[in-house]
């Protein structure tokens, strides 16, 4: 399944390369850049529709940044990275404001974190910490309430890079 997704993503990345190469210069807020280590793993840009096409996970939780309980839905990071997630190393996550944090790949779980695309069913604008937000189901387990977890919870996610 993961392999199928990866193949699918690779196909998408190819298409993007062909159609959107002119816009490389401009920083795109809506496209999520994914890149692997090594020469062969060139960056792939995924739009909201691309992400919606991938398997979705939804959970309810409170966060320290929002009021009350909210519902997040989106693509699990592990699924999004596909084969890349199987390596040793870290995934380097960068926000629109260049905030950068590394998360060890072996800490990725099937359902957490997710790259949330919807908050309470609505897509998120940049002003609302969107369009992509890495979140954990904080309420489900205290292990998601550590400083490290909060550091990994990066909003306005813009780029993902798997590093050995």
């Amino acid at each position: 399944m993961a392999k199928a997704i990866y193949t699918h993503a690779c196909a998408l990345i190819f298409a993007l390369f062909l159609g959107l190469s002119a816009e490389v210069e401009a920083q795109s807020a809506t496209a999520l850049e994914i890149s692997g280590a090594g020469a062969d793993a060139g960056p792939v840009y995924l739009e909201l529709a691309d992400l919606d096409a991938l398997p979705q996970v939804t959970f309810e939780t409170s966060t320290i940044w929002t009021d009350g309980t909210v519902t997040f839905s989106g693509v699990p990071l592990k699924a999004l990275l596909g084969e890349l997630s199987g390596r040793n190393g870290v995934v380097e996550m960068v926000a629109l404001n260049d905030y950068k944090v590394d998360m060890p790949l072996d800490r990725l779980e099937d359902g957490a974190p997710i790259v949330a695309t919807r908050l309470n069913g609505e897509s998120m604008s940049v002003r609302d910490k969107g369009p992509y937000w890495v979140v954990f189901p904080y309420d489900s387990d205290t292990k998601y309430q550590t400083e490290t977890t909060y550091a990994w919870s990066i909003w306005q996610l813009n780029r993902l890079k798997v590093v050995d």
Partner: peptide, 25 residues
């Protein structure tokens, strides 16, 4: 590009939301 400035404004504005919501409030 002009879009870039707008994005910067949006990012800055998104930070302000923290003051009004969640645990920071």
């Amino acid at each position: 590009p002009e879009e870039n400035i707008r994005l910067r404004v949006d990012i800055a504005l998104s930070r302000l939301a923290i003051i009004n919501s969640g645990r920071s409030a």
